[in-house]
Design a protein around this nucleic acid. Structure first.
Length: 493
RNA sequence: GGUCCCUUCGUCUAUCGGUUAGGACACCAGAUUUUCAAUCUGGGGAGAGGGGUUCGACUCCCCUAGGGACUACCA
């Protein structure tokens, strides 16, 4: 039901892409991969995992691949696949080859399992679910991992029609050592590693088997993933050995937690990469922030992609879990917002405005486009910018509240009329010159800004958030500024 | 319960046995001031606790506490 259309899982292309890597004699020295399971949106933690894989591949001149782990047919959905690809795309983390869909490779996985059975490293297990539960309970009581009684028992005629799974035949003693690039040497006692299921009753491969086979077939050299998989690395290590596959290097990076230290979840505001986009963050800002979360290069905080690529090293990834800090993300975003091209910021602001149900007509849109360079440093996110930009796109005549009207005393109105006359004669309509003109005006009138600034601001912005008056005038342009002033100056005398 | 991982300012982190423990965000104060911001200057703020090892531990080892992951026919 939740199954995926076969078109997305064209086995031919998926398998072929894998074979290309294997047959290439000049295969890169480093191949990393991001392997999400399509059960939801691209999680911000997953995005960081993808980023680290991408950075390491770029740093080493290697390849970055994407593999969709969709072996769980019940939970995998097509919208999730699309959302993940869209998230990666937005973040600028593109796979260097066609993405591989794990489900399409089920035959290859079964083949590997049969190999294991033939080698005596896996066996058919006929336990029912209830029996397995009982067995598990007993194993737990004895302080060891689950083993099946079928481990050393040959099935008889009675089993002929019985369903079975294929379990890995794990060693009973000895240790399995995972040499992790981040966590160091981690030792597991084999008695604690259970005989995990390799093939389900319906013949479908399970995760731990599929990852090993796929990572091997895809030529993955470095498995960089969340440290929630550190335990799995031991189980997978055993499978690599049983299959006679060379093991990749492992790097288990800490997970991202919410601001309160708990596992990141919905209540922390956002989880999906798409949420960050909707909240008005720039992809390059998120990349910078995410890279800095758990990884560092001395005191560097703001850096370009090129610098991140040049500097990134797994050895500099920290071991502790990091918390998401919205303030710092906002700060980084503000930096990139200032540096971004005005046309791009304008487009994003318009999109945000439209999403808020505030579509723009041609004239205010044109005004905003021209004003954008003067305004894009006034917010930390596109959403904040959408608020900061309201005074520009407001339509005449502006409605002033009682407080603003109170500012327009006869004296102030005549004073502003004199200012208007001076503005009308201005040739250089730009923020610094306008600011200077305003200063000169105040001096010539023998007054401080406080005597006419608030009133002028009210006339020009109707109380919307706005920058320095020089910038306000510049942003509005000579025509709109003049009209807004005329609106209020001509008929209150 | 078992196994494994983690622990420096509020947060992200630097430090790779010898530093007045540095930076960034946040916070506080001051400057600026025509709203709100921004900006500039200054300030407070940390090695979870306890044992060792060492001439000397944030750094190495052990214990405890706290946090996290795994312990599925999920990935």
């Amino acid at each position: 039901m939740a199954g995926l259309p076969t078109s997305l899982f064209a086995a031919r292309s998926c398998v072929a892409s894998v074979r290309i890597w294997i047959s290439m004699s000049d295969r890169p020295a480093v191949v990393t991969r991001f392997a999400p399971s399509p059960t939801g949106y691209l999680h911000i933690g997953g995005a960081r995992t993808a980023l680290f894989n991408w950075l390491f591949a770029r740093h080493t001149g290697g390849k970055f691949l994407v593999r969709v782990e969709d072996t769980d047919r019940e939970r995998s959905t097509e919208p999730a696949v699309a959302a993940i690809f869209q998230g990666l795309d937005w973040l600028g983390l593109k796979s260097d080859a066609e993405p591989v869909f794990q489900f399409a490779r089920a035959d290859r996985h079964r083949e590997a399992v049969m190999d294991l059975v033939a080698k005596g490293r896996a066996y058919r297990c006929y336990m029912t679910a209830a029996e397995a539960d009982a067995e598990r309970e007993q194993a737990r009581a004895e302080g060891r991992a689950l083993r099946s009684p079928w481990r050393d028992r040959m099935p008889g005629p009675a089993q002929d029609a019985m369903p079975y799974v294929i379990r890995f035949k794990g060693p009973l003693d000895g240790d399995t050592v995972v040499e992790d690039l981040v966590q160091g040497t981690v030792r597991f006692a084999n008695r604690d590693l259970d005989d995990l299921v390799l093939l389900r009753t319906d013949g479908a491969p399970t995760y731990n088997l599929a990852v090993v086979v796929d990572d091997h077939d895809m030529g993955i050299t470095h498995v960089i993933r969340g440290d929630d998989h550190l335990n799995n690395a031991a189980r997978q290590s055993l499978i690599y050995e049983a299959l006679d596959f060379a093991k990749p290097a492992f790097a288990h990076i800490p997970l991202i937690h919410g601001p309160d230290g708990a596992k990141l979840s919905k209540r922390h505001g956002a989880q999906a990469v798409g949420d960050f986009e909707a909240m008005g963050y720039l992809p390059e800002a998120l990349r910078n922030y995410l890279a800095r979360l758990g990884w560092s290069h001395g005191d560097d905080e703001i850096f370009s992609d090129a610098e991140a690529i040049a500097w990134f090293d797994i050895a500099d990834v920290g071991k502790g879990a990091a918390r998401l800090d919205w303030d710092k993300l906002a700060h980084v975003n503000a930096h990139y917002l200032k540096a971004a091209g005005s046309e791009r910021v304008f487009d994003l602001v318009v999109t945000a405005l439209t999403a808020k149900g505030q579509g723009l007509e041609a004239e205010p849109a044109a005004r905003l486009k021209l004003a954008m360079p003067l305004l894009q440093d006034r917010g930390k996110t596109i959403l904040e910018l959408a608020d900061q930009v309201q005074f520009v796109i407001a339509q005449r005549p502006l409605a002033l509240d009682a407080k603003a009207n109170a500012l327009l005393t006869p004296e102030t109105v005549t004073r502003l009329s004199r200012l208007k006359a001076r503005l009308d004669g201005t040739e250089t309509w730009n923020a610094p010159d306008l600011e200077a003109l305003l200063k000169d005006f105040a001096q010539d009138e023998g007054i401080g800004f406080g005597k006419f600034g608030p009133a002028l601001r009210a006339i020009l912005t109707a109380g919307h958030p706005s920058p320095d008056l020089g910038r306000v005038l510049a942003a509005l342009g000579p025509k709109e500024s003049g009209l807004r002033m005329d609106d209020k100056l001509s008929h209150s005398d």
